[in-house]
Computed example of a mutant assay.
Amino acid sequence: MTIDSHQHFWHYEPIKHSWLDESMSVIRKDFLPEDLQQVYQKNQIDGCVAVQADQTLEETDFLLDLAKKNSFIKGVVGWADLRADNIDSILKKYSSDKNLKGWRHVVQDETDPNFLLRPNFLRGISLLEKYNHTYDILVFPHQLGSVLEFVKRFPNQKFVIDHIAKPFIKEGFYEGWAVLMKEIGKHENVYCKLSGMITEADYNTWTAEQLHPYMSLTLEAFGAERTMFGSDWPVCLVAGNYGQVKGLVTKFISTLSSQDQDMIMGKNAKEFYSL
């Protein structure tokens, strides 16, 4: 089974989706399950994990409603304010929905590089394990130092780093990102998504060869057993098409054993998110 571990849906609203700047004008429109289902049929994808793009509980409810109506959406990563005083009751409420698999906060947009280590946020994270909820880590490379401290505090919590932590591929920056990713990869409760890479390179001129060092390091740090394919559809459309994104990963891992390829292309996502 081939699982896309990372994609989004939205009804486009200019204010709510202001992060879609002029360079992303091609995706300033609605993207819904009927759109993605056609893409999946063309690209032999069996199911997906829908990940939050807006930081509201309404977004979580929207994705869960879509999952209820579309069987190919195998799980949802929602948003809740993990810093809230009543976070335990919120988590308890959502734990009754079998499609809710985990949570994410857009940490990359937080100005405090140590946002993940704030006491109220740590308290929220500490409650996830009892509900068997995962946590998606969305950060930029300069925040990886706090990610390392963060994952050390919760050795039994399932974490996954989104978009290989968004290295500055366009600028060719590599070393600092690589050192920290290797350290984080030593923690066996942390996985990583091979996703969001072409949009960290130059939208128009990226090449597979340019991305290979970043994919190689990710595979070295996390191993085939903790790496998973994700498309980041529809965001990926600003720099390519779905076939290119999938092909980038499948060609890169083609020299691995069939067992390793199966893990990266679906099995790991299935196990991580309990799909």
Rank of each mutant, 00 (worst) to 15 (best):
M1R: 07
D4K: 03
F9I: 05
Y12S: 06
Y12V: 03
I15S: 08
H17K: 13
K29M: 09
K29N: 04
K29Q: 09
D30I: 04
L32N: 03
D35I: 01
D35A: 02
V39K: 11
K42R: 14
K42E: 15
I45S: 01
Q55M: 05
L57I: 06
L57E: 12
E58K: 13
E58R: 12
T60Y: 12
D65C: 08
L66G: 03
K69F: 08
S71Y: 15
F72Q: 00
K74V: 05
K74T: 04
G75A: 09
G78W: 07
W79Q: 06
A80C: 08
D81S: 07
L82A: 04
L82F: 02
R83G: 01
I87M: 02
D88H: 07
D88T: 15
S89H: 12
Y94N: 09
R104E: 07
V107H: 06
Q108S: 02
D109P: 06
E110F: 03
E110K: 08
E110Y: 11
T111F: 05
T111P: 06
T111D: 09
D112R: 02
D112T: 14
N114K: 10
L116W: 13
L117T: 00
L117F: 00
P119F: 00
N120C: 11
N120F: 07
G124I: 02
G124S: 02
L127M: 13
H133M: 10
I137Q: 01
L138D: 06
H142L: 09
Q143G: 14
L144G: 15
S146R: 00
E149Q: 08
E149C: 05
K152Y: 09
Q157E: 15
Q157P: 14
K158P: 10
I161C: 04
D162W: 03
D162T: 13
I164A: 10
I164D: 09
A165S: 13
P167I: 01
F168A: 12
K170P: 06
E171T: 02
G172L: 12
Y174L: 14
Y174H: 05
E175R: 05
L180W: 15
M181A: 10
H187Q: 14
Y191F: 12
C192M: 08
G196P: 13
E200D: 08
T205V: 07
W206P: 04
T207D: 10
H212Q: 14
P213M: 07
S216F: 03
T218D: 00
A224I: 04
G230D: 06
G230R: 12
S231A: 05
P234A: 10
C236Y: 07
C236L: 13
C236E: 06
L237C: 05
A239M: 13
Y242N: 02
L248K: 10
V249N: 03
K251A: 08
S254T: 03
T255I: 04
T255P: 00
Q259E: 13
Q261L: 01
Q261C: 02
I264Q: 00
M265G: 01
M265R: 00
M265F: 01
G266R: 11
G266L: 09
E271S: 15
F272W: 08
